[in-house]
């Protein structure tokens, strides 16, 4: 488990590529991938302000300090696994 610490976690299956996180990052940490999804191009510049986290309309971004990730397990992949569609939400 020597994975490098990333302050910003993207949960891309909920991301709609609106670009809000990229535009309003005060430190310009984020950029678009060629497919439109955001990624942390300069993670070391992140000041953990959380603006991208609270501005994401789709709850697809989590910003956390290193120890928070470990202790609180904020992003639990298994929770997302449960969230599979079963009822359509059309108009």
């Amino acid at each position: 488990m020597n994975k490098k610490y990333e302050p910003i976690h993207f949960f891309l299956r909920w991301c709609k590529k609106c670009g809000i996180c990229i535009a309003f990052c005060p430190k310009h940490v984020l950029e678009r991938r060629p497919d439109g999804y955001p990624y942390a191009a300069r993670p070391d510049d992140c000041i953990l302000c959380g603006l991208c986290d609270i501005h994401c309309p789709d709850y697809a971004i989590t910003v956390a300090k290193k120890d928070e990730f470990r202790e609180k397990k904020i992003v639990k992949e298994e929770d997302h696994e449960k969230a599979q569609p079963d009822t359509p939400a059309g108009q």
Partner: peptide
């Protein structure tokens, strides 16, 4: 942070991502 609170309050068995358009403010 949203992501901390959101899993507590969202209904896990609904369809996600939610119904609103990309960039819609309602999600925020």
């Amino acid at each position: 942070r949203t992501s901390e609170a959101i899993y507590k309050y969202l209904r896990p068995d609904k369809k996600y991502p939610h119904v609103w358009c990309p960039g819609c403010g309602i999600g925020i």
